[in-house]
Design a protein around this nucleic acid. Structure first.
Length: 653
DNA sequence: CAGGAAGAAATTTTT
DNA sequence: TTTCTTCCTG
């Protein structure tokens, strides 16, 4: 009879067979940790007689939870049933705990989770109420600040008045934010030990994936949750700790053996994902990291193709290069027949990924590749209404809906850079407060005043002429026309219609019957939930474009990494010294470590962000006013360090 | 105007 | 943790 664990290597088997006591699995990238974890769970049930309902598997993302569930389902046959096992994110677990036991800490039974846009608007109000404290921080930024404070478990007494006001606001409305899910559960554990005990007996075996990414709050919760039996299995890789900026503490990973005395440590070092070339390149670099658990990844695959580093003069040629290479790899565009040169590991566009650090890079690249007939799918996390190009449009619609919406109007004004900027807006807002009327009325007054101050006045007048004109039109023309009209007036400098705008208009289609004024309220209500990219379902055969962060844990046969000079730098790498000054070599790590099966290109554009390509869509553009600072940049750009002769190719390893 | 210091922005998940 | 921007100094 074949053993359940036959498919595993010795180290993986060891993990699966460790039934009790604390266990730390130090798992390198591509070592099959999810698979191992799933086999372990199956083993616990099948061989160690742990009832599945006593098991809890915690993942970091819903996507990871879903993957684990699927793997478990496909593993379960021959009478093995793991469906009673609890698999999910720590947030979903807390949500359920609070639903069941929240009344013990006076949490109303009908609490709801605040939606991100609602949260943003609460914070927007508070930022205005506490101008001194927030300084010039945007509501969005301040929202992140609040999250970080809460994730770090900063006590209520020590937080700022704004944070406290925010918290009181939520409580008054029976709302919890995502951080509260953890914090309130901790509070519940502290206040009612009986519930903790009950959960201890419910979940005797706990597994935690991506342990290196947990923050202070999650750590406390996991500690409280782990039973006195301490059957806790933590899996992680310190070398993949890339979320420190949002409060993740790798220290938790290093401290595991202190936190759970007698913990066994098992290393998974057989990499099944990448070629030997990529792994050795990655190892060269990663071994210089300061804080890490020593481990040596062993390649199971052949050396594979060499890593190529290309230097291109600028990002336009960078895009052209990527397009050309993709065509070459696929043997011409999709309309041509496959040529003999087609490389066998690339079967289609979806086998190719292009990574970069910043989303802005993706947008530009998308345009460039699509123009060459290459289908692309851009992975974004941002909500459509949060995109910098779209934000002013939404604000505009809000002002159309209600011209006296001072927040939205101020937002539009503040977004412009030179003449109507934060300073002018602030003055105008103060004026409004003094007069006790809306910002809109103040603007009207200024525009109708006989003498106009030279500088902001002219622009304000132009702005108000446009705005009032469009408000009038909104009761006549349809929503899509109104948006287009606004866009064209606003961004005359833009010749081509923006992709994001098209997405917005597509999602507005259901609300485009009749005059815009009628459709706007319903549309605004809906837009807050739209994620960028969800309006067009381009699923399928397309090149994937995403940030390096977004690519964590994924794999593609061919990977292009853009922008070596723009921050594709391993976050946890030590300062220069370890590897002399070989920039490229050091920069290999991050990428090679986590992805790319066969072929990896690193692109180095010497002159990234050319004039005109990075232009922000602000009302100042609409006013035909190019800020002087922006014009100057053109001359500054060429003086960069580390210049290399263009289009020089070198092969490593 | 070169060069440095200091601050800001960027990477993102959770019902 | 890195890069970009802004402001200041000699």
């Amino acid at each position: 009879m074949p053993d359940l664990l036959d498919a595993l290597n010795p180290a993986q088997k060891l993990v699966a067979r460790t039934v009790s006591g604390p266990l730390l699995v130090v798992a390198g990238a591509g070592t099959g940790k999810t698979r191992t974890l799933v086999y372990r769970l199956a083993y616990l049930v099948a061989r160690a007689d742990v009832p599945p309902e006593n098991m809890l598997a915690i993942t970091f993302t819903t996507k990871a939870a879903e993957e684990m569930r699927q793997r478990i389902t496909s593993l379960c046959h021959d009478g093995l049933d793991l469906s009673a096992m609890r698999i999910g994110t720590i947030h979903s677990l807390c949500y359920d705990i609070l639903r069941s036991y929240g009344s013990n800490i006076n949490l109303p039974a009908d609490f709801t989770i605040i939606s991100p846009p609602d949260r943003l608007s609460i914070i927007k109000n508070l930022v205005n109420t506490f101008p001194d404290e927030s300084g010039s921080a945007s509501p969005r930024k301040y929202g992140l600040h609040i999250s970080n404070e809460k994730n770090a478990l900063v006590s209520y007494e020590k937080t700022t008045p704004l944070c406290r006001a925010y918290q009181e606001m939520l409580e008054r409305q029976n709302l919890l934010d995502f951080e509260d899910l953890i914090i309130k559960t901790l509070e519940l554990f502290r206040t009612v030990p009986a519930i903790t005990a009950e959960l201890h007996s419910r979940f005797s075996h706990i597994s935690v994936d991506e342990y290196q990414d947990i923050n202070a709050a999650q750590y406390s919760l996991l500690r409280s949750l782990s039973s006195p039996l301490q059957n806790i299995c933590a899996v992680g890789d310190a070398d993949q700790a890339i979320y420190a900026f949002r409060g993740a503490l790798v220290e938790n990973f290093f401290n595991f053996q202190n936190d759970f005395p007698g913990a066994q440590v098992i290393y998974l070092e057989q990499n099944y994902r990448s070629t030997k070339t990529i792994i050795s390149a990655a190892q060269q670099v990663i071994k210089h990291n300061k804080q890490r658990v020593e481990k040596e990844l062993h390649a199971t695959r052949t050396p594979g193709a060499a890593i190529e580093i290309w230097h291109v003069p600028d990002e336009i040629q960078e895009a052209a290069f990527v397009a050309r290479e993709i065509e070459r790899l696929l043997g011409g565009t999709r309309f041509e027949t496959m040529s003999s040169e087609q490389e066998e590991y690339v079967r289609g566009f979806s086998d190719i990924a292009v990574l970069y650090r910043l989303h802005t890079q993706g947008r530009q690249l998308k345009k460039a590749l699509q123009q060459k007939g290459i289908p692309v799918e851009v992975a974004t996390t941002r909500l459509l209404y949060e995109e910098p190009e779209i934000k002013p449009v939404i604000d505009f619609l809000e002002v159309i809906q209600n011209p006296h919406n001072d927040l939205a109007l101020a937002e539009i004004l503040t977004a412009s850079s030179s003449a109507i900027g934060p300073k002018t807006t602030e003055k105008l807002s103060l004026e409004a407060a003094r007069k006790g009327c809306s910002l809109f009325n103040v603007l009207l007054d200024i525009c109708f005043a006989s003498e106009q101050p030279r500088h902001p006045g002219v622009r304000l007048k132009a702005f108000m002429d446009l705005l009032t004109g469009l408000i009038k039109q909104s009761s006549v023309i349809s929503l899509d026309k109104l948006i287009r009209e606004f866009w064209e007036q606003m961004f005359t400098a833009e010749t081509d219609t923006h992709d994001k705008l098209l997405e917005l208009i597509t999602s507005a289609m259901p609300f485009c019957h009749g005059p815009a004024a009628k459709g706007i309220p319903a549309f605004l209500n809906k837009i807050s939930l739209l994620k960028d990219g969800e309006t067009f379902t381009t699923r399928g055969e397309a090149v994937t474009l995403m940030t390096v962060h977004g690519a964590k844990g994924l794999e593609f046969p061919v990977v292009f990494i853009l922008g070596l000079e723009d921050g594709l730098f391993p976050y946890r790498l030590e300062q220069p010294g370890g590897l002399e000054n070989d920039e490229e070599e050091r920069r290999l790590f991050y990428v090679g470590m986590t992805r790319a099966k066969e072929k990896l290109y690193l692109l180095h554009a010497q002159n990234r962000f050319l004039f005109g390509e990075r232009k922000k869509m602000t009302p100042s553009v609409f006013l035909n006013d190019i800020p002087p600072a922006f014009t100057n940049k053109q001359h500054k750009n060429p003086s960069r360090k580390n210049r290399k002769s263009p289009s020089k190719q070198m092969k490593l390893f």
